[in-house]
């Protein structure tokens, strides 16, 4: 098989993984206008939760996805109510510090409870390779993650555009001041949005658990990539996050092979910085968001 086709297939599927992690982040930023620096740590918690459910209760990770997403919805809503809500009118610095604090606390709590060992969910099926039209060979788990990310993004976009609640969510994003005058409970919308964003993370954790082990700093491993994806696509744009994720997946896959394995992150960080500087609103972003 052609090495280039294989690399592209790997990159696209990796993009699916990144998209799954990024949509919650971009949704929360777009609506609540808070950059959640604890996003990666939520994923870390989700990976541990899936691992516990799989090893202690023998639950299949894909079966765990739904209850985990629901649990994370409430976790996210709770986090918004307890920590973000009191700071909604505070300086952006303070909001950054608050979420950084949550992330630091979660990562270190995990270190205390689980130590630094890797905890993997054993699901050989997901790691098995499958042939993709004779062009490339990819793991089934990656295909599942890819499919889930597309379905989840599509469902979110439809929800935001077609339902009353979705429209109210967008209204809050566009004009925080006018929304309550329409009878929209803005704080409730924020909690719901944070919940949905966290729910996406819960879903992602369950789908990714067979592919990636849980360890205390796994969050920062993923979250920087998620930031790159979200900024590239345009903060707040769901479509942008998917496109950004595919681009970064491809870059990582190709740069890892053609440049140097340990410099692949440098390559996409350079792209990230370039985008921030040349077009801070991202590919699909609305100007003024930066």
């Amino acid at each position: 098989m052609d090495i280039l086709l294989q690399l592209i297939a790997n990159g696209v599927l990796l993009g699916g993984v990144f998209a799954l992690i990024s949509i919650g982040l971009t949704l929360i930023f777009g609506i609540v206008r808070v950059v959640n620096f604890a996003h990666g740590e939520l994923l870390m918690v989700g990976l541990y939760a899936t691992w516990i459910m799989a090893t202690q209760f023998g639950l299949h990770p894909y079966v765990a996805a739904l209850p985990l997403a629901v649990a994370f919805f409430f976790l996210g809503a709770l986090m918004q109510r307890a920590i973000i809500q009191p700071l909604m009118n505070a300086d952006p610095h303070i909001q950054i510090f608050a979420t950084v604090g949550v992330g630091t606390a979660l990562a270190n709590a995990a270190l205390m409870i689980f130590s630094a060992d890797l905890r993997s969910v054993d699901l050989p099926w997901a790691r098995q390779a499958t042939d993709l039209f004779g062009l490339a060979s990819v793991s089934r788990g990656n295909l599942v993650a890819f499919a889930v990310s597309f379905v989840a993004t599509g469902a979110l976009i439809a929800f935001l555009n077609r339902t009353h609640l979705g429209r109210a969510i967008r209204a809050v994003a566009q004009n925080r001041y006018a929304a309550p005058l329409m009878g929209i409970d803005v704080n409730r919308i924020y909690a719901i949005t944070f919940g949905i964003g966290a729910g996406c993370v819960g879903l992602a954790a369950a789908v990714l658990a067979p592919l990636y082990p849980a360890f205390p700093t796994v969050g920062s491993f993923f979250v920087l990539t998620a930031f790159v994806v979200v900024v590239l696509g345009g903060m707040g744009s769901l479509e942008g996050a998917v496109v950004g994720a595919l681009i970064i997946g491809l870059v990582e896959s190709l740069a890892g092979y053609y440049v140097a394995p340990d410099l692949k992150e440098v390559v996409y960080f350079v792209i990230f910085l370039g985008i921030l500087i040349v077009r801070p609103a991202g590919l699909f972003g609305v100007r003024g968001n930066e």
């Binding site: 510090f97 608050a98 604090g101 949550v102 630091t104 606390a105 270190n108 205390m112």
Partner: peptide
């Protein structure tokens, strides 16, 4: 680290 995070919040 946990102490730092909690104090910060």
């Amino acid at each position: 680290g946990l102490v730092y995070g909690l104090v910060l919040v």
